[in-house]
Design a protein around this nucleic acid. Structure first.
Lengths: 152, 152
DNA sequence: CTATATTAGTTAGCATAGCTAACTATATCG
DNA sequence: CGATATAGTTAGCTATGCTAACTAATATAG
């Protein structure tokens, strides 16, 4: 062995994997997002609605933080969701400054459909892989989830 | 075995992997993109510049297709890149309707730096995985590349 | 307990990035 | 040559991001 240091550094192998993972993630999401045109809603609205549906009701500020967006941006997204009957503002009991945002049944249904389209489309393509490749991919996704949990 | 059909379908296992891969890809890219603020350029410009730098000069229409965007959108992105000295339009010899777009040395340098920031940031976090996990991830990325090549 | 400071959200106004429709200029084809 | 097709641009709309400045409500200092 010519190289001493072996763990937790930015070696060429890790850089190569990072590079290719990055590129693959970009192209996968670009493909999958094409399915969303069927919803008639833009990406920011769908993403915020997804957080509401799967994370439950939360304040506008929490939603903005979850979407890594500033509050004024989220105000407008929530306005649009409310206009479309997909979410509603509910007064917070105890702190009148806060506004709870919750998905409506219509919003939940729309998101469910959008999600099934996206995930089903991706699954159809992953289905062309062998059983072994899918198993390896499953393990890799677990590693990625671990990386994300550790991220900050 | 209670289930007969085993290959190339949308079973619950594949759906689960698709779901988690989809989510992981979204969150990974959201993290990595934070690094781009250092460039002072927006995401559409950086992405188009990346295609130019790594794919070489091409016409505006080809660039629009590569970015899955309509020509008028790409016209404005190229205008902005040109204003910033990051790319330039070159007349196409042989067909005066076409315009070749090429990255300038300044554009190449800017993109190189942005890329190193993004990939390095991601690699640093992948570096917290074990050697075995990284190896599995590398194989999984190969599978994803295969899926993408087959996609359409 | 009032006066001040902090916090949550909104409003206003700007920039970027997407679209379609309509236009210009050039090529191609009958 | 004239009709048609193709490549880009222009104009104008929508969506989504930002900062600065505002309002309302809560928390805190004296």
């Amino acid at each position: 062995m010519t190289k001493g240091k072996r763990k937790s550094e930015r070696g060429p192998l890790v850089l190569g994997i990072a590079d290719r993972l990055h590129s693959a993630a970009i192209h996968l999401l670009r493909r999958v997002r094409q399915q969303d045109t069927a919803t008639g809603e833009g990406p920011a609205r769908l993403s915020a609605l997804s957080v509401l549906v799967f994370g439950g009701p939360m304040t506008l500020g929490q939603l903005a933080a979850a979407e890594q967006v500033k509050p004024p941006t989220m105000t407008r997204i929530v306005n649009a969701l409310e206009d479309g009957g997909l979410a509603k503002r509910v007064a917070d009991t105890g702190d009148a400054r806060r506004v709870q945002i919750r998905a409506t049944p219509k919003g939940m249904l729309l998101l469910q459909a959008a999600r099934e389209r996206r995930i089903g489309y991706l699954a159809d393509h992953l289905g062309t892989l062998s059983e072994h490749e899918r198993s390896t991919l499953g393990q890799a996704v677990e590693s990625l989830e671990k990386v994300l949990r550790r991220w900050e």
